[in-house]
Nucleic acid binder design. Structure first.
Lengths: 219, 219
DNA sequence: GTCTATAGATTGATAGAC
DNA sequence: GTCTATCAATCTATAGAC
């Protein structure tokens, strides 16, 4: 009963099962997907799945773990790149949103898990990927504050929540926003990110005028 | 087969069923909840549910429709209040987040539905409540732009996405953020909202200094 | 490794007594 | 309106042939 998700000698059927399960679990959720449906999608028999995975829960966990790989390394590279905080923030925002858009199934899997209050099956995996991205972004913001590039009087964790939230929310609700007339940015995630980072940086950067304008309403 | 969710003469058992179903559906999702489980939670028999609802789907839809009422009216009132765009935005942000925090089950139900790509059972209800809130916020921002209170060169729909996304993301991930050391704002949603509106308004308000500082990186 | 066949439990929904 | 009893379908998981 070795963990086959750790090494590379998986075999063809193994990958087909994992891919089929990832698609179905992401689209419909754990309980709405039967082992029979996964087998059909993978083009094999139901019993064959149990040759690779002891039960449905183990398959689900393997799907989440397998799908989670990749995004982490991608973003770590961005965070460790050289440049001003402004530059890295732009780069991070775009890379993060592209990372989400390139892995729609992973994102839906993770957020399904986060919404779950009854039987969290893979909560740890979901939280871990989440926390690493968050920590990386907070690091970028803190560096910007230490360098005097960004204001020192805002909470970097709150600013990070704003940016990551803007990206995740864009990803989650783009299908709904598309049907809504005043929204024109749904099909250009890059343009969206340039705009939100612009707004955020205007709010986070050193600069007295905007600050003075607000003094009355934010004492 | 009258729609009992429209009028008030529901009766005791009816309300118990709706409450039990709302809790279980929100916690575990549609497919993970059996009619038997709902009956147990409501303290009645399974067959009795079918006296009030023709099938499980109808019960689920009734739960969503019933839970959706209230938040809409609450926010419309805020949007139509008098004051500067800045004031209304502060008010809206706080009211919106409080509205989410006061209805955790409704929010989880709606977002489960939005994540669903396989069998959208109540997509319309979810989208409708979403769109109304979004439209209201865009209206506030546009008014602020027309009055010259806010910059005219940002897309109000993008700014609305930023604010609503910040609130929804806070709600969705507050349990995860709580476990993360640098985060200190989880237990004071009001303080969180004051901070993000502060950051956003600095970025959206008229003011030349911050703008000039960024000219080089945002041509 | 892959299959057919099937066990055993649970599901959504119904029938009919009270 | 509320119940017990039950149906037919479907579910996870296993047994065992090839």
């Amino acid at each position: 009963m070795e963990d086959r998700t750790q090494n590379g000698n998986e075999g063809e059927g193994f990958r087909r099962i994992l891919a089929a399960a990832e698609k179905l679990f992401a689209d419909r959720g754990f309980d709405a997907v039967s082992m029979h449906a996964i087998a059909m999608e993978a083009g094999i028999s139901k019993a064959n799945i149990y040759h690779y995975f002891p039960n449905k829960d183990a398959l689900y966990l393997a799907v989440l773990r397998c799908a989670s790989r990749g995004l982490r390394e991608e973003l770590q590279e961005v965070v460790n790149s050289h440049g001003t905080a402004t530059e890295i923030l732009h780069h991070f925002a775009v890379s993060h949103l592209q990372g989400l858009m390139n892995r729609p199934r992973l994102v839906r899997l993770v957020w399904r898990e986060i919404l779950e209050k009854g039987a969290p099956r893979a909560r740890e995996v979901a939280e871990q990927g989440f926390a690493e991205i968050f920590a990386a972004l907070v690091g970028v913001l803190k560096t910007g504050q230490q360098r005097g590039e960004l204001r020192a009087d805002f909470d970097p964790a709150i600013a990070a929540t704003l940016l990551i939230g803007a990206n995740v929310f864009f990803f989650q609700s783009r299908d709904i926003l598309r049907h809504y007339p005043p929204v024109t940015f749904v099909d250009s995630p890059l343009g969206y990110d340039v705009s939100i980072v612009d707004i955020l940086l205007r709010g986070l950067a050193q600069g007295k005028a905007a600050q003075d304008d607000l003094q009355e309403s934010v004492p």
